[in-house]
Amino acid sequence: MIPMRTIAEQLDVLENAGVLAFAHNNKADVRTAVAALRAEGSEGLVALHQRWFAASELAPLLTLNGKKGFVVGDMTDVDEFTPAGINLPDAPLYLVRGVRRGDDLHNVSPQEALVQFEASHRRPLTLQEGLSWALSTPAIIEANSCFMTIGSRKVKRIQRSGEVVYDSRTPALWISSGTGRDGRERRGAPKLGWCWWRNRHTWLGIASAYA
């Protein structure tokens, strides 16, 4: 498993790569959050909040094997996948503790994993949190050990009863094989795609953190 970089190291990577310049809201809030995290004495994943940073703009900033990341062609609605049942700090950058890639959850469906998380006081990573991890530590996306970020879902509709019906896709980060619509030039590039909520994959974990 790839070790988590220090907070300062993660911030340096994000700043040097120009990631923080992609913030949609008040840039002063970003500078304040960065300063607060640099003063933080603990450990954790520096996460980019989805209200400030769009997944569609973060994915192309990913790099792996000298190639830039991309969003699959049939996920043009990627920015409509937002945190589901997860309360996030109201800050452009924040810390996530106890992050795991979920290698132990290979061949477990997102639906099954969510039940396990709830029983163990953990919660799934959101898409932006997964992207943040891959941006600051590109090697976390490894062949045969990539991961889903099932904490972000797209609301399909809300029933009269108030029940939320979600899209059956769930976001995932892995490495393109260069086949199909990806194109051969993207072989080995980091890829933001999706998997079905009830499907299992032997090479995809399900990332999580402390609840």
Rank of each mutant, 00 (worst) to 15 (best):
A139L: 07
R153T: 04
S42R: 14
V78G: 10
H49C: 02
S161A: 11
D104K: 01
A55P: 06
P138A: 10
S132M: 03
R97G: 12
H106E: 02
T82H: 04
M148H: 06
L95Y: 01
G98H: 14
S56T: 07
Y166K: 11
R160Y: 08
A143V: 02
P110D: 08
A54I: 09
G98K: 13
G44E: 12
G73S: 14
L93N: 08
A59M: 11
I158M: 06
G73R: 15
V96E: 13
A113P: 05
A134K: 09
I141C: 03
S168D: 02
L127S: 10
K156Y: 09
Q111G: 00
E129Y: 10
Q50R: 12
S132F: 04
A84G: 00
I86H: 09
V108N: 00
P60Y: 13
L64I: 11
I86F: 04
Q116L: 09
I86T: 09
G178R: 00
T170N: 03
F147C: 13
D90W: 02
S152T: 07
R51P: 00
I150V: 13
S132W: 06
W52Y: 15
T63H: 13
A55E: 00
G180T: 03
I86L: 09
R122C: 14
N65I: 11
P60S: 04
S168R: 05
G102T: 06
T170L: 01
I158P: 09
I140W: 00
R157Q: 05
L88P: 08
L95E: 08
L62I: 07
L114P: 04
R122E: 14
N144P: 00
K156V: 00
E112T: 08
P92L: 02
G73W: 14
A139P: 02
Q50W: 15
L125E: 00
I158S: 03
K68V: 05
Q159Y: 04
P110F: 01
T149K: 09
G98Y: 14
V155W: 04
L135G: 08
G69S: 14
T82I: 11
L58Y: 03
L45W: 04
S152G: 01
C146P: 05
S56W: 00
D79Y: 08
W133M: 07
K154G: 00
Y166F: 12
R51G: 15
E112H: 04
K67Q: 10
R153W: 03
L62E: 13
T82S: 07
L135R: 01
D77F: 12
A59V: 08
L114G: 02
F53H: 09
E118D: 06
F81V: 07
W133R: 14
T82W: 11
I175M: 10
A59I: 05
S168E: 01
R157E: 04
P110R: 12
S145D: 12
G73D: 14
I86G: 08
L105D: 03
L114C: 05
E43C: 12
R169D: 06
F53T: 07
E163W: 00
E118T: 13
L62R: 05
N65Y: 03
S152A: 11
K156S: 02
S120D: 13
L61Q: 09
V165P: 09
D103E: 13
S152M: 12
